[in-house]
């Protein structure tokens, strides 16, 4: 008897107890149609049950294994969770913290806004990521620890920005007034788009989310690449390396979420390293196969240690931490 696909689907859902009430009724009706149908269903049900015991055919000694495992794990029965006391005390602590915060902000304001810079306005994201609206309505998400300046005549002829660190830009379209970002090595020019610029001492990176971006060397803009949606490039010592954007993890510092969907280990490690700003090494053996091991996971607001533990557990690779640096080995 050749079953049609629909009946087969009903059967396998019912076997795994996943059929809805309607599906159950439909299957029931089919079974009651004929003795042959009923027999066919019974055959499948039996195969389903028998195959389970058949596959788990080899009998492992669970008791012996448990004794083994018990020996290896440090079972400490009395871990005590300490409870914090003294709300008054912590309130006072909070007041002190607030005062310090204000002091820092005031200090930052003094340094950045009262200095002799008449030509450039500077803004810094000292303690947290910062969202900055530029005079023309363009938006910059500035990563914690980065700073951005814009010219006083911003928007008159063109739109000029200086960036130290990392920022995500959503630029208002305006073909007459190009938007130009300079870092210490690179010049990034756009007409209207959203993209990321990451700049440090040795290299600059641009990741384009939408639109078109011209990414050039600062001193010689004839050395450049044009990037479009889904593309990225890194500029290191006057050389460009292009690649495609695989995921949104370049914005993890804003979303606080790292997402891996069958991401090769090499890429995942790059993303994690970039987000937590921690160096991660791969040993030669791991590096050789880092493209063939893939990860599927989502980390939201987790610590680097939690993320590394998870990766260790999911891949079976060994991860060691020394002086805040991680090494992944076999």
């Amino acid at each position: 008897m050749e079953l049609n696909e629909n009946i087969m689907q009903l059967i396998i859902r019912s076997l795994n107890r996943e059929a809805s009430a309607e599906e159950h009724a439909e299957l029931e009706a089919w079974i009651n149609e004929s003795a042959a149908n009923r027999q066919e269903y019974e055959v499948y049900r039996k195969l389903w049950e028998d195959s389970a015991t058949m596959i788990a055919d080899y009998d492992f000694d669970t008791t012996a294994a448990w004794n083994e495992v018990q020996k290896k794990i440090q079972h400490t029965p009395a871990e005590v969770i300490s409870i914090r006391r003294g709300t008054l005390y912590s309130f006072r602590k909070m007041a002190v913290a607030a005062a310090i915060l204000i002091f820092i902000l005031a200090g930052a304001y003094y340094i950045f806004f009262s200095g002799p810079t008449s030509e450039w306005e500077t803004m810094a994201a000292n303690d947290s990521n910062k969202r900055i609206a530029l005079p023309d309505g363009s938006i910059v998400l500035l990563r914690k620890g980065s700073s951005l300046s814009y010219a006083n005549d911003y928007g008159n002829k063109d739109r000029r920005i200086r960036l130290a660190g990392e920022g995500y830009f959503q630029v208002e379209p305006n073909p007459q007034k190009p938007f130009r970002i300079s870092t210490s090595h690179a010049l990034v020019e756009v007409l209207g788009t959203s993209f990321l610029v990451r700049s440090d001492e040795t290299s600059d990176q641009v990741v384009v989310n939408t639109g078109r971006v011209k990414f050039a060397e600062l001193n010689d803009t004839s050395v450049n690449v044009i990037l479009t949606k889904g593309q990225k490039a890194a500029l290191t010592h006057s050389k460009f390396a292009r690649d495609t954007v695989l995921n949104n993890n370049y914005l993890a510092w804003e979303s606080e979420t790292l997402t891996f969907h069958n991401t090769p280990l090499r890429q995942a490690v790059e993303d994690i390293s970039s987000y937590y700003q921690v160096p991660i090494q791969l040993t030669d053996e791991v590096a050789q196969k880092a493209d063939s091991i893939t990860l599927k996971a989502e980390f939201r607001k987790q610590t680097i240690d939690q993320v590394m533990d998870e990766i260790q557990l999911m891949t079976g690779l060994k991860i060691t931490k020394e002086n805040g640096n991680f090494t992944i080995s076999e």
Binding site: I55, A56, D57, D59, F60, T62, A65, W66, V69
Partner: peptide
């Protein structure tokens, strides 16, 4: 552990 050990080992065995 006791509930899943045998099935997991058989799975690993495959």
């Amino acid at each position: 552990f006791e509930q899943h050990y045998n099935a997991l080992c058989n799975y690993a065995l495959s």
